[in-house]
Nucleic acid binder design. Structure first.
Lengths: 339, 339
DNA sequence: CTGAAAGCGCTTACAG
DNA sequence: CTGAAAGCGCTTACAG
């Protein structure tokens, strides 16, 4: 039950630990017979390297930290899953930190990850005191900022073109003839929310429709907030005939509020979501939504980080901007000029 | 930018590293003045212990592994979040492994966690070759099995009384007058699914209703499977008036299939789910469901594991069986004796 | 082609 | 009350 060490193997094979180490790591050429003896010993004793010792020596832990704002948001769950997959492919484990949209928890995680000596971090901000990120920098830990931009130029960044995506979603509703389009936003200190709203405004302007701030309802990207926002909108004098919710979770909340109010979707109200989580096809009606390229986000973030960790990239920080993709399903339809 | 070590601190304070170590860990009494000097040096240099070195020495990594079958299932996402919280409280980080219901990935993760030398593991099985668990045992890594039972008595176990929960859910439908009650199950090699079905059968028997295997549809605990199962049930000659889906994700899928088929819930069809994920209140109608005590599950699992890791418990393995709690919402109603 | 030894940064018997 | 030194399990210059 006691762990087998390189020393045991050396003894078994009758060679030095140096040789065993070189056999294991293939770091120098070894007499084939010696090598075979070592291999046998390795096998016989069931040697497993102690990576703690290896880490101490190399200064690398082969571990990356991932901080997400809300793991119960299926979008982040998906992103986390993909990042884990890609990390695994390159031999990295992922320590997941769920900041729960709480800047204090976020700070705690940042400190934990530093203490744990992760080799790198993928960071999806919950907002708050982003100065914390500087600690990574000061500890020489590379960071890739994903999904939500952060006003500190200390990291590579992988983002969506949220402005364009917001524009296209709104444009879709405008093309269907809607002219009273509400918007349920995320927290306004979060860059994707702000930028999608910018896109929304641009589309309105293009169609000569004045922007009305009273058609903007603030949510927090969770179900409940979408439901509550929709309820407020339903009480609005200018009954909106369409709603652009800045994520699917809130769109689903809005859908329910509308159902509860006896509206039929999309006849009485068109709804567009954002993210294209799996659930968006599972609700009724299936949600028209803006698909995020989750796989690309995860892949780019992981790749950039790995390059930094392995120092194959030491140049300037890079900004990757990806494109979203409107998916038209059954929650939107041409405005009915009824009543 | 170079890490500050205990040696730097010793030099700064003009003492030995032994003394610094003892100050840090409060492991022996130190002359107050010396102590103050060391504290100052610690502070001034911003010393952070290198936990890798500490781990190498102590053989402990203060890390626990958590293996879940599907992180995109909100139930597991919630469990994971809670376990992480509790672990954090005791100074443990959590490495999350998502087996994706894939026995091969599960085996991979098991090996990764062993390699990473986690101090303990909380294991929610995806089924498959559970013999893998033995490797933890052989490496002296304590395991707590949660949610899904495993036919190996090598670990403490935290489970729900699934039979009783299944009974109560079915009983609720029977009390409402339903007598043709379908059941959408999970994979049948997974203990909670089997046991909930047992409870379902017992309730039927108690009401003198013969069990009909053609009213059982197999799913995989994901949305889509609930939807597909419901579609099959709708084509069933004996139109069931009620469905017991063994988790909320499938219940929501079933809800949609029913909506799509033009049924109104609960008038035409009652649906009971299982888990009480947040989403169950966000769909329309809100789901009657069996609430799992997620917090208790997480807390018990974490506590048992911590005791094992700290060797404060060395006795026989323990089995904690928790109770679920039926929550009646709007997706179930008295059977209408119509048509 | 191979080995003895230093060193990664800690903790902790051992000695005084 | 304090310190010198061994040792955790590796990797890797250095030497031959």
């Amino acid at each position: 039950m006691d762990r087998v060490t390189i020393k045991d193997v050396a003894q078994e094979a009758g060679v030095s630990i140096t040789t065993v180490s070189h056999v294991i790591n293939e770091t120098r050429s070894i007499n084939p017979e010696t090598k075979a003896r070592v291999m046998d010993a390795l096998d016989k004793l069931g040697y497993q390297p102690n990576i703690i010792a290896r880490s101490l020596r190399s200064g690398k832990t082969k571990t990356i930290g991932l901080i997400v704002p809300d793991i119960a948001n299926l979008f982040f769950a998906d992103v986390a899953r993909k990042i884990e997959d890609y990390g695994y492919q390159y031999g990295y484990s992922v320590i997941l930190g769920n900041s729960d949209n709480d800047p204090v928890k976020q700070t705690n995680y940042i400190n934990t990850l530093i203490t744990k000596q992760v080799d790198g971090v993928i960071f999806i901000s919950a907002g708050g005191v982003i100065e914390d990120l500087r600690s990574f920098y000061e500890n020489g830990i590379p960071v890739v900022v994903a999904d939500r931009d952060v006003p500190l130029e200390l990291a590579d960044v992988v983002l969506l073109d949220n402005e364009k995506a917001g524009y296209e979603a709104t444009r879709h509703l405008l093309d269907l003839g809607h002219d009273c389009i509400a918007c349920i936003t995320g927290p306004n200190y979060v860059s994707p929310s702000m930028q999608r709203v910018e896109g929304y405004k641009r589309a309105l302007t293009e169609f000569g429709i004045p922007f009305r701030s009273d058609l903007i309802e603030g949510g927090d990207f969770q179900f409940k907030s979408g439901e509550l926002a929709m309820q407020r909108l339903l009480a609005h004098p200018c009954k909106p005939t369409a709603v652009f919710a800045l994520n699917d979770m809130m769109a689903i909340g809005a859908l329910n509020a509308a159902h509860d109010a006896g509206l039929s979707i999309p006849t009485d109200l068109s709804i567009v979501g954002f993210d294209n989580i799996e659930l968006s096809t599972a609700v009724t009606p299936a949600l028209t939504t803006v698909a995020q390229p989750i796989d690309e986000i995860a892949q780019n973030a992981t790749n950039l980080l790995i390059k930094r960790m392995q120092c194959t990239r030491t140049e300037e920080n890079i900004r990757v901007i990806l494109s979203a993709n409107l998916i038209i399903r059954n929650s939107t339809s041409r405005m009915v000029v009824s009543k």
